[in-house]
C-alpha cells in the first residue's frame, strides 16, 4: 500500500544550520497494516510523515501509495487518499465553522467541489450517526462552532473528518500528546476502533512505548533519520518496554528521550 524508497531530506542544506532529517528511509506497509512509530526527539518521525503527506518534498527517493508514484504530487492532491491528524488539536479543524460544516468539507475529500450545496440535508442523519459513534455527545451539537469544543472533542472530530471518507492511508502524529491521560486513552480507543473497523493502513507516531507495542500490528523504530528496526509478529508480541529500550540504544547509540521514558512509566 505504502512504499518509501531511499527517502532523504536535509534541511537548510549548505548553511550552518544544515540538518539531515531523513537519511535513506525505507518502509513498506501492506494494505491494512497499522504501524506505530517510535524514536527519540529529532529522530525524523514527523519529517517522514510530512514527506509522505507532501508538506515537505524529499531531496531524493520515491514514494508509492496504492500503486501510484506520488513523490512529486502536491499536498492537497495527495490528501485525496491520505487522512491526517496533528499533535495540535487546533490544526485539524476550522474553528469558526460549525461541526456540521467541518464534516461537510471533509466528506467531500477526493471529490470535485462545485456549486452544489455545501451541506446537504440528507447528510445530516449520517453525520449524526458517525458523531454518535464517538460517544462524546457531539451528535447533538451539529450547529456548534468548533472553537467551543475541548481539545479532546476536537481531536475526535478531526479523526472522524480524516476517516469519514475512508482514506488509503491515515497519518497520526502524536495525536493524543496534547490531551490529558484520560482523554488520550479515550481518543486512542476511538482511533483503534475506526482503524480496525475500516482496515485503514495507518502510521501512528507515539511517545508512549507501551501504546506503540499494544496498538497495531507493526512497530517502526526510528533513530537519527533512519528506520533502525521494524518489529512485527512474534518478536513484537514478546517484546517488553525494557527490552525495546535496550534494543534501541544498541541500534542507534542514542538513548530514548526522557519524554518517552516518562510516558512509559506513568501510563
Amino acid at each position: 500500500m505504502l512504499k518509501l524508497q531511499d527517502i532523504r531530506l536535509t534541511f537548510h542544506r549548505g548553511t550552518v544550520n544544515e540538518r539531515r532529517a531523513l537519511d535513506c528511509v525505507n518502509l513498506h506497509l501492506s494494505p491494512g497494516d497499522f504501524a506505530t512509530v517510535i524514536g527519540s526527539n529529532g529522530a525524523g518521525k514527523s519529517t517522514m510523515l510530512n514527506v509522505i503527506a507532501g508538506s515537505y518534498e524529499a531531496d531524493s527517493g520515491k514514494i508509492l501509495l496504492d500503486g501510484e508514484d506520488i513523490t512529486l504530487r502536491k499536498e492537497y492532491k495527495r490528501a485525496n487518499k491520505i487522512g491526517r491528524l496533528f499533535q495540535d488539536p487546533l490544526k485539524g479543524t476550522a474553528p469558526n465553522m460549525t461541526i456540521e460544516e467541518n464534516l461537510g468539507l471533509a466528506y467531500l475529500r477526493g471529490k470535485k467541489r462545485g456549486m452544489g450545496s455545501g451541506l446537504k440535508k440528507t447528510d445530516e442523519a449520517f453525520f449524526k450517526k458517525m458523531l454518535a459513534c464517538l460517544g462524546l455527545g457531539l451528535e447533538d451539537r451539529l450547529k456548534t462552532q468548533v472553537k467551543l469544543l475541548s481539545g479532546g472533542q476536537r481531536q475526535a472530530l478531526t479523526l472522524l473528518m480524516a476517516t469519514i471518507v475512508t482514506p488509503k492511508l491515515l497519518l497520526l502524529d502524536e495525536h493524543t500528546a496534547a490531551l490529558d491521560p484520560k482523554t488520550a486513552l479515550q481518543i486512542m480507543r476511538i482511533t483503534d476502533g475506526i482503524v480496525r473497523e475500516n482496515q485503514i493502513t495507518t502510521l501512528m507516531i507515539t511517545h508512549n512505548i507501551k501504546d506503540a507495542l499494544s496498538y497495531g500490528n507493526k512497530t517502526v523504530v526510528m533513530g537519527q533519520g533512519r528506520v533502525v528496526l521494524i518489529l512485527e509478529g512474534e518478536e513484537r508480541a514478546g517484546m517488553t518496554v525494557e527490552r525495546l529500550m535496550q534494543l534501541y540504544s544498541a541500534n542507534t547509540q542514542d538513548a530514548f528521550s526522557d519524554k518517552m521514558i516518562l510516558y512509559s512509566r506513568h501510563t
Partner: peptide, 14 residues
Amino acid sequence: RATGDNEDMVRASS
C-alpha cells in the same frame, strides 16, 4: 471560508 479559517486543515482535506 475554511481557507480563511484554517489553511492546514483545508489542504489536509484535499
